[in-house]
Design a protein around this nucleic acid. Structure first.
Lengths: 205, 205
DNA sequence: TAGATTGTTAATCGATTAACAATC
DNA sequence: TAGATTGTTAATCGATTAACAATC
């Protein structure tokens, strides 16, 4: 792992490689090549080698990459060789689905709190969590040192809640609300919006 | 709309512009500029002008863009000036959330069927839909002429179901399973995976 | 008119690909 | 050894930005 700035676009591909490698490990495979991995994820072999080589020499000429070893290296690079506490804001259908999502635990994430501003929901259970009042969001998140939030609230309140999250010290937001949110430049945002993703494909139909 | 090939990366930004414009229209705004829109979505004004100008001259020097006009043009370009029937495969938590999602209707999509392979679920209701048997997937999708599918099933069966969808004539798949799926090159895939999206941000924490 | 903002060109910047020596 | 595949360089390709004439 060198000190030079790694382009964002490379970082964005690493989780895709990691996911494919974990599927391969599930099947009991031990080694792969840039060619093989590339076919699985739809990326050229040259690009995979170039991306991985930014961080060290993890392969062997003639044999390729050890799957378990490369998984460990990618986990370290992406800092998911540890568990991150995350919170969910919004206890609607999407919040429910995420609170019960099984895919977080083995990829470095652990849901610890769920918030909502609806008086009829606060205090009730959602999966293993008791829904907490959004008005306590800043103090609770700050004191727990939470850095990651999942936003599943209406577009109309997304910016306002985002500002609370930033105030509370959150540095990474996964935004399910159908609106672009503004954050300081030390805070990262990823948008997940099913309609927007579908609209990227209809052009080609 | 000219005949030259528009880069994929430009098409990917248009739904983001459209979403922001719709939020502005909701607030009653009538016009915007590349500068203003750019600040809202976090993209440079020059790039927004360049992207939009690929498709025609939709703005006016001195005053910018009419929001309703630009919304209509983007809808036409993205082919969401009509309604697309979509199906959901997998009646788990995520399938439920998507079946009840309110954000599809005004952005060009309409859920028409939900499938699952679990005998305990088939025949039961999910929102307004009766869950149908995956074994009838190909015939039903083919005869209804459906082109878009949302995949919310386990990684282990994702590729197998994908092949059925392709056989049935589906040309756009929104994949919620944590695995890369392979499709013929005339089929588009978008991946939505919360853990992968979070892993794109942890690197920077 | 004066000010603002587009659409477009050229320059810059960055990412991808092809090729191959090194080496397992 | 012979075959395979990495890591890396240089060439190519593509995307972004800056600048500005045109014009509302």
């Amino acid at each position: 792992m060198n000190a030079e700035k790694i382009p964002d676009i490379i970082i964005a591909r690493l989780p895709v490689y990691l996911r494919a490698l974990q599927r391969m490990a599930d099947k009991g495979l031990q080694t792969t090549s840039s060619q093989d991995l590339g076919e699985r994820v739809g990326i050229s072999a040259a690009q995979i080698r170039k991306d991985i080589s930014q961080f060290g020499e993890f392969g062997k000429q003639g044999t390729g990459y050890s799957i378990p070893y490369l998984i460990n290296k990618l986990r370290e690079i992406l800092k998911v060789d540890r568990m991150w506490d995350v919170i969910i804001i919004g206890a609607g259908d999407m919040g429910h689905a995420l609170a019960r999502y099984q895919g977080f635990a083995d990829r470095g994430f652990h849901v610890v709190m769920v918030f909502d501003n609806d008086k009829n929901k606060i205090g009730h259970k959602i999966g293993d969590f008791i829904i907490e009042d959004t008005s306590h969001l800043v103090e609770k998140v700050k004191s727990a040192g939470i850095k990651i939030a999942l936003l599943t609230i209406p577009a109309t309140v997304a910016q306002e809640i985002t500002e609370k999250l930033v105030e509370a010290g959150v540095k990474a937001i996964l935004n399910y609300a159908p609106i672009s949110i503004s954050v300081p430049k030390d805070v990262k945002v990823q948008h997940i919006d099913p309609a927007t993703h579908l609209q990227r494909m209809t052009y080609y139909l």
